[in-house]
Nucleic acid binder design. Structure first.
Lengths: 127, 127
DNA sequence: CGGCGTTGCTAAATTGATCAAGCGCGCACC
DNA sequence: GGTGCGCGCTTGATCAATTTAGCAACGCCG
């Protein structure tokens, strides 16, 4: 059998529990936090958030909360599933996927050519 | 000098221009990118994104695009205004090539021009 | 007991992201 | 001149995020 985790109807919500525990730790009411975010997050929404009723809260919201609750923004982002636990940016450019390569992925000759062209562009625009 | 910047009605959208220039640089159509994301992002939506019609694209979308276009997820997040540019840029010294530095330090217009030129170079050498 | 403020919650309404479908254009080929 | 095709773009509908309004339970003090 594969690892079909039984997806609970309600989320595996680390985020909600976390928010709730922080808020209680600071001994604030839902409305207190709403105030603390200068109304950027409503108490009603925070309630839903803590109870895992929300799938993808917008980063904007998380940012407000991080300030109001004095926790790290990246921490919330991570718990919301938007960031990997501060992992490395794999220099995966290795596997030479034909279809896609960006400007960071150049052969020596290409790089030389581009640098020349860049010099040309800059010279031209500076005239 | 501390005039408040007049916020243009339309976005200060670096993200859109950036996505557009990268896509063109790779010489892909909107629909090509839609394919590349395995339909996770529609061509219609990508169009709106590039033209700055979207305020808060979901990180999920940005993630798909970052993979399809082979750019860094955090980069897109930052351009979308979700991350502070604070994230230290340290990692990019990976290539250990001096030239890469110069090339990774570009204005949007320069980048676009270079990507075009790169496409041209690659097309030419592949004949 | 009877009001009164507070708290957590939720139903309904609004707003915005996202997509499927389609439009008009330019370009090749007949 | 068609006509077919791929392109970027717009539009209309849909669905989830977020808010507004309100309810029910609690403590508290007269």
């Amino acid at each position: 059998m594969s690892h079909d985790e039984v997806k609970p109807a309600i989320k595996s919500n680390r985020l909600g529990e976390y928010l709730n525990s922080v808020r209680r730790g600071l001994d604030l009411s839902l409305r207190d936090v709403e105030e603390a975010t200068k109304k950027e997050v409503s108490n009603a929404y925070l309630s839903q958030l803590e109870n895992g009723k929300i799938e993808k809260p917008s980063p904007h919201i998380l940012h407000s909360l991080s300030i109001a609750l004095n926790v790290k923004y990246e921490d919330l982002m991570e718990r919301a599933g938007y960031l990997k636990p501060s992992s490395e940016r794999a220099s995966d450019s290795k596997h030479g996927r034909a279809a896609t390569f960006a400007i960071e992925n150049l052969t020596v000759e290409e790089e030389e050519a581009l640098l020349k062209h860049l010099a040309y562009i800059r010279w031209q625009t500076s005239k």
